[in-house]
C-alpha cells in the first residue's frame, strides 16, 4: 500500500506574526517558513508505517508556491520516498483554499492510488481545519479526523480521535483519510546524511492547470487587522494582594 501525505509551507510556529500595514494579510516576506507542524506529524506517522512494514511507499505532495520545494525536501529527508510539487501560486502571500487543495489532491490521488492519506489536522496559518475532511468528501472515502493513534489492520484502520469529551475510537474502511493531531507521535529531526540523500530523491513538478483545477478563491479577503490588545496589567506582591484585587474586581 502507498501512503500520500500532503504538506504545507507555513510561517514557522515560533515567529511573531505581523499584519501588513495595508490590511491585505500577514507579512510573509523574509520571515522563517517551515513545514506545518501537524504535517510533520503526518509525515512521521507515514514513515513509521513504512518502517513497520505496513506500507511500501510514502509520497508527499505540496500545493502552493515553488518555495514549497524546501518543505518537500524536509519531508524527503525525514524519510518520505518521493515528492510532488503542484505550483498553484507565484506570490508567497497567496493561500490556496482547502477546497481547491482538496480538488487538486483528489486528482493526484486518481493517478497515485494510495490506500491511505494522512494529513495534518489544521494549518497553523489559516487555522481552517478542513482539507482532510473536504478531500474525504470529494473522494467519497471514510474519514478519521484528529487522530492520536492509528493502527492498520487488513482492509480497515482503527483510529483513536481527540474529541471534546475525551477520546473516541472508530474503525474506518480503507482507503481512508486520517488527520493527525498533536499526540499522534513526536516527529523526528532529519539527520545531515538524510538531508543530503533527500536532494537526490525524485521531486516531480506540476501545476494546478495540469489537473484542471480552478484555484480562484471563494472567500475574498476584505481586510486583515490586529486583534484588540489587552490593557496592561499589574504585578501583585503576594497571595493576599492577589485575593484583595480579585475581590475588588468582583471576580471571586
Amino acid at each position: 500500500m502507498k501512503v500520500l501525505v500532503p504538506v504545507k509551507r507555513v510561517i514557522d510556529y515560533n515567529v511573531k506574526v505581523r499584519v501588513k500595514a495595508d490590511g491585505s494579510g500577514v507579512d510573509l516576506a523574509n520571515v522563517k517558513m517551515s513545514m506545518n507542524p501537524f504535517d510533520e506529524i503526518a509525515v512521521e506517522e507515514a514513515i513509521r508505517l513504512k518502517e513497520a512494514g505496513k506500507v511500501e511507499e510514502v509520497v508527499v505532495v505540496s500545493i502552493g508556491v515553488k518555495q514549497a520545494q524546501e518543505t518537500l525536501r524536509t519531508a524527503l529527508a525525514m524519510g518520505a520516498d518521493r515528492a510532488i510539487l503542484v505550483n498553484a501560486a507565484d506570490d508567497v502571500h497567496t493561500d490556496i483554499e482547502p477546497l481547491a487543495v482538496a480538488k487538486i489532491l483528489k486528482a493526484v490521488i486518481a493517478e497515485e492510488n494510495p490506500g491511505l492519506v494522512i494529513a495534518g489536522k489544521q494549518a497553523i496559518d489559516n487555522d481552517m481545519n478542513a482539507t482532510g475532511q473536504m478531500l474525504s468528501a470529494l473522494l467519497g472515502w471514510s474519514q478519521a479526523a484528529f487522530a492520536s493513534k492509528l493502527e492498520i489492520e487488513g482492509d480497515h484502520a482503527l483510529v483513536t480521535r481527540e474529541v471534546d469529551g475525551g477520546l473516541q475510537t472508530i474503525k474506518v474502511k480503507l482507503p481512508t483519510i486520517v488527520t493527525a493531531d498533536l499526540r499522534l507521535n513526536e516527529p523526528r529531526y532529519a539527520s545531515l546524511p538524510n538531508i543530503m540523500k533527500a536532494k537526490k530523491k525524485p521531486l516531480e513538478e506540476k501545476t494546478a492547470a495540469d489537473y484542471g483545477v480552478d484555484v480562484t478563491p471563494r472567500l475574498t479577503v476584505v481586510k486583515t487587522t490586529e486583534p484588540a490588545a489587552r490593557a496592561t496589567g499589574i504585578k501583585v506582591a503576594s497571595v493576599d494582594e492577589l485575593v484583595a484585587k480579585l475581590k475588588e474586581a468582583g471576580a471571586v
Binding site: 477546497l99 481545519n129 475532511q133 471534546d164
Partner: peptide
Amino acid sequence: STTDAKNIMPRVAALLDVMILSD
C-alpha cells in the same frame, strides 16, 4: 465550533462544492 462540527462541517461544505468558514 466543537470537535464534532469541525469534523463534519468541512465535509458538508465540500459535498456542496463550497468553502468552509471555520471559527
